[in-house]
């Protein structure tokens, strides 16, 4: 085991992640009309964003400023307020809105 990975040498091979690959490609050096991985990506939607209740999936008319969750009616609001904090964060993480501490 130890002969296989001598000290000071990293185990296995490190593979570049997609972000690194794309950065290394230097797409800015190529003509912009040539299709590449970056520029075929879809732009942000022009439709108004759909606001749905984070818990039930109904159309959300309201927004709770304390938990930052969207909710559909009073019943859901009660549930929202009774949710423990980690659940709130998990619901927020579903739509990429959770507070990330770095």
């Amino acid at each position: 085991m130890y002969e296989k990975y001598p000290k000071g040498q990293s185990r296995g091979r490190h593979w570049k992640h997609l972000k690194q690959i794309l950065q290394a490609e230097n797409y800015q050096n190529y003509p912009p009309d040539e299709p590449n991985y970056m520029n075929i990506e879809a732009p942000p939607s022009m439709h108004p964003p759909k606001r749905i209740c984070d818990i039930t999936g109904y159309e959300a008319q309201y927004y709770d400023p304390r938990t930052k969750l969207r909710y559909a009616n009073a019943e859901v609001f009660k549930l929202v307020r009774s949710l423990p904090d980690d659940y709130v964060q998990r619901y927020l993480a579903l739509r990429n809105a959770a507070v990330v501490l770095k």
Binding site: A42, P44, S45, K50, I52, L94, R95, N96
Partner: peptide, 12 residues
């Protein structure tokens, strides 16, 4: 159809 539901800012 609406990727913004999961926080992806792209079109459907």
């Amino acid at each position: 159809f609406s990727p913004n539901i999961v926080g992806i800012d792209q079109s459907g």
